[in-house]
Every structure is written in C-alpha cells, then in structure tokens.
Design a protein around this nucleic acid. Structure first.
Lengths: 195, 195
DNA sequence: CATTTGAATAATGTTACAATATTCAAATGA
DNA sequence: TCATTTGAATATTGTAACATTATTCAAATG
C-alpha cells in the first residue's frame, strides 16, 4: 500500500445518512413469516410504499355508513317527468348498498394513470374494488406486479397471464416466470366526479 | 458439579422435534417490516393460523400450489390494507357522504343514450344530480327541452344557450325563443358498473 | 408393560452483520 | 469567491446467526 494523498472530502462531525431516510420513512423491525405469506406481505409493503409516494390512495369502506335512499329516474322518461317531491317515485337507491356487495371485502382506490382511459377510467376516479370476487379473465383488476401498483384488464389464455392496458399508448404487461403478480381485487365500478 | 447418574432417558438417533411441527406447518422466513405495519402483519398471521386450525387443509394441501411466482388469485388470507394515515378511522369512505352533498336536493338518473360518451357517460351509468347547484356554463346538466328529457353540457354565451352533446355523432341543441327549457339539476358524478 | 426422562432436533423471536444507500462539509480547482 | 467533487459518517435493509423455547420419542426405570 502506498500512501494515498486525500484529494477531496474529509472527516467531519454530523456527516452521514439522515434518520428515516429509507423507503418507509420510519423504523423497521424484522419478523418471521411463513413462506406462503411472504409474497402477500411483500405486496402489502408495496402498497404501503406506493401510498407514501402518493402514487395511490386506498380507502376502505365504512361499515358504519348510515343508509340513505335517493330516488332514481330513468332518462327514458320523456315527458311528465315526475317531481322528486312526489311520493309517487319510481325507485330508490342507496349507493353503498348498490355498489358494495361484500362490505368487508371492498375497498376503494383512486385511479392515477391514463392507461385505462378506454375502459372509462380517468385519473382521479374512484374505483370500487371487491377482494372476494374471483379474478376471472377479462375482469379489470387491481394488481401489484413486481412491486408496482397497477389497474389493468386481466387476461388468462392457455395458462398465459396478461394485464392489458385499455389505451393504445400503453403497453400490456405479460406475466412470466420471473414476475411477481399479486391481485388485490376486481374492480366492480368506477366513479367519476365532475369539478 | 457432582456426577449425576442418569436415571431416565438416553441418547439415540432419530430423536428430536419433527419438521414443520410449528404453528404454520411450513418453513418460515424473516423479513423486515416498518413498525407501523407490524400489527397488521401480525393479525394477518393470526388469521392464517386460525384458518389452518379450522380448515384442516381443505385447500391446496398438495393440489398444485403454484406459489412459486404465480398469483394468489384466491389467497386464503385477505389482508387488510395498510394506510399511512394517522387516524385509521378517517380512511374509511362512505359513498353517500362523499358523493351527495345536498341530500334533499339530490337524485339519480340512469343514463340512456350515447350522446355524452366523450364526457364519460355511458348507457346504463348512474348519474348523481344536484338540483341545488347553479346551472353554470360548461356544467353537465339534466334538462327537459320541449318535453324531451336529455343530458347535455350547458353553454351560455352572450345570452345564447346551447346544450352540447359530447359525441360528434350527435347534434347540439340550440335553445331559441320558441323552446321550453327546464334544467333539473347539475350532474356531479357518474357511476359506471362493470358486468 | 406403563411411566418418566432427557438427548436430539425444530421453531421462533431477536440481535448481529455485511452490503448498500445517503448525506453533506471539507477539499479542490476554476 | 464559489461551484463541483469526494469520501467519512451514518442509516437502511436483507439475511445469517444465535439463544431460547418447544417438541418428539426411545431408552431407562420401576
């Protein structure tokens, strides 16, 4: 070893990485998990990270929501539109009941990208997702692929799984051996709010 | 220490605890988890354990369990969603509360035509309509024109009122002296349900 | 032959460690 | 003087190692 003259840098106090500068911005702990749940826990961590990055926003459904029935009309009614003041109402609808079939298994996700525009999903829309429904082919699903949160249409064909974007400008995701795919649930409805 | 004469037991081969005799009946792995998710993961493990106990290997004890890199379409344990929100109660969503601001003045309409496709309104969608909001220009409104029920985007310009379709295949409706126009309310959101 | 015992082995929670990532003042040089 | 480069200091993070506890069951015992 020869003596290396220092050309830059130097010792000092107060150097070093900042606390909580990791991906979780908080302390971590090691825990032991059965192998069959490792992927699932990983996916949970990924969702959490995505939320921290505010890539996604996930909300759960409110089990204590009071019921509220509101009249619904069909726009087919051409004339003599019945006033909502009438008690002669066609029908009433409670959004929570109508859109949520399995309360415990339902959660909401706020859509981010534009990859599903042609499926009617716009950035900022609220997606209603049911974890208890089977992820059948051609359903729109919420998935985590290799740690990335995504909304795509699921296709299974001859054992090959593809997540299809519904916007020609976006690429489909073909799942192969090396990919980790976790499906969180099936999108049952989209809610778009106007400004 | 004095020499203790062995009174029972003895060395032998094949002794020892059996493999997979732990609570999970499978190998485990340590992983690092942010402290705020530790409880959540623990409860996931607990659910898993209780399922193991009751199910007594109902599913995929050997069926195929392609858990190598392949999806957990029907993961046995439905984990809750992690939330970075401090108050866990606040990330529960009541659709009624979220979408309906003036309960008394709100009603639903089921959309019929395709004239508003580009505004994201498809046939069969549920429109949330608020009667109490001012029908400003550029808002999507529910209107009755000469007795005909319609959903269009309202435009007011220099005293001229137009109801614009949001689909090039449909004509706009220009309101003139002789027309009767009644605006029932402003569409605040659209809900589309997937089959 | 039924009961007791303890050596062998696995599970499990925690700590330790090595490798990587990040920070930012000192060193440099323009 | 000031912008850029550098590397010591410190944190993160995945995994291995460890200590403790739990379990198993044949040998020892009576």
């Amino acid at each position: 070893m020869n003596t290396i003259t220092q050309t830059h840098g130097g010792a000092r106090i107060g150097a070093g990485r900042k606390k909580n500068s990791g991906k979780f911005k908080e302390d971590t702990k090691v825990m032991r998990v059965p192998v069959s749940l490792v992927d699932q826990v990983k996916s949970t961590l990924n969702v959490y990270k995505s939320q921290l990055k505010s890539d996604v926003e996930v909300l759960e459904s409110d089990s204590n929501a009071p019921s509220l029935s509101i009249p619904i009309f069909s726009s087919r009614v051409q004339a003599g539109f019945p006033s909502p003041a009438d008690d002669h109402l066609e029908d009433r609808l409670d959004l929570n009941k109508h859109l949520i079939h399995h309360q415990e298994a339902t959660f909401f996700v706020r859509a981010q990208g534009e990859s599903m525009l042609n499926a009617g999903i716009h950035p900022g829309d609220i997606l209603v997702v049911d974890k208890s429904l089977p992820a059948k082919s051609s359903k729109i699903v919420i998935a985590v692929v290799d740690g990335e949160f995504t909304v795509k249409r699921l296709h299974k064909y001859k054992g090959k799984i593809t997540l299809k974007a519904e916007n020609p400008e976006f690429d489909d995701i073909v799942i192969s051996e090396g990919n980790e795919l976790i499906i969180w649930g099936v999108v049952t409805s989209v809610i778009h709010q106007y400004a």
